[in-house]
Amino acid sequence: MSTIERLTTDMTAALKAHDRFALGTLRQVVAAVRAEEKAGKVARELTEEQVQAVLAAEVKKRRESATIYSDAGAADRAANESAEADLIETYLPAALTDDDVDALVARAIDEVGATSVKDMGRVMKAVTAAAAASGGRVDGKTVSAKVRAALS
């Protein structure tokens, strides 16, 4: 079952169970995916990777909003945003551990033959592709920091 099918099925289940929180969150996520499908000149069906990218963007937005609300003293809103991000993350592949990312970075540096920070873009591309191929999810900031540290 594809991710969008799971989202739709779970949204229907939340509707039947009168789970307002899950229903609202899932509606927003499905709407974001549908909007991405219709973005551009011609509507298209998104691949599984593209759907995952939309979900990751939704999680990122909610995490950033939670931080802003927390800094502004609105703890209840921050908790709600964090809970929504946690719910959406259940539809994403598991995040890679720091050790896994370190191993991917080391392997990518060897494959690319990188010797300095000038090669960072090529290493980042290789690490991102390797992470996607392994079925894991990795944060771009984390990869960037680890690549920069390894090449320095």
Rank of each mutant, 00 (worst) to 15 (best):
D99F: 07
R107S: 14
E89G: 12
A129T: 05
R34K: 14
A126T: 10
D99V: 15
T115M: 00
A32M: 00
N80H: 06
T47I: 03
A79K: 03
V54E: 13
G121F: 08
A17G: 14
T67C: 00
V112M: 07
T97M: 08
L26E: 09
S82E: 05
A95W: 01
L87K: 03
T115C: 03
A35K: 12
A150Q: 09
D10W: 10
R62E: 07
G140W: 07
V138T: 07
S134R: 13
A43L: 08
Q28N: 15
R62K: 04
R27H: 13
N80G: 04
A103Q: 11
Q52I: 09
L26W: 09
V105W: 12
V30C: 05
T3Q: 04
T9L: 14
D99C: 01
E111D: 14
A32H: 01
T3V: 11
T47M: 00
V105Q: 03
D110K: 11
Y69I: 03
Q28P: 00
V112E: 09
L46K: 01
R27Y: 08
T115K: 05
S152Y: 09
E64T: 15
A78P: 03
K61G: 04
T142F: 04
V105Y: 10
A57H: 06
A75S: 10
S2Y: 14
H18N: 14
L7Y: 15
D86N: 11
Y91V: 10
G135A: 08
M124V: 06
R77K: 15
A83H: 00
S2R: 12
A32S: 06
V138H: 04
Y69F: 14
T67Q: 07
T97F: 08
A131L: 07
V101D: 01
A32V: 01
A149V: 03
V117A: 03
K60D: 14
S144V: 09
V127E: 04
K41D: 09
T142P: 02
K38A: 15
V143L: 04
E111P: 04
D10I: 07
K118R: 10
A79E: 02
V51S: 01
A35P: 01
R44T: 12
Y91I: 14
A129N: 07
A39K: 13
L96S: 12
L46C: 05
S144A: 10
S82G: 08
M124I: 12
A108K: 05
L15I: 15
E36V: 01
R20M: 12
F21H: 15
R148H: 06
E89H: 05
T8Y: 12
M120N: 10
A94P: 06
R20Y: 15
K61D: 11
E58C: 07
D99S: 13
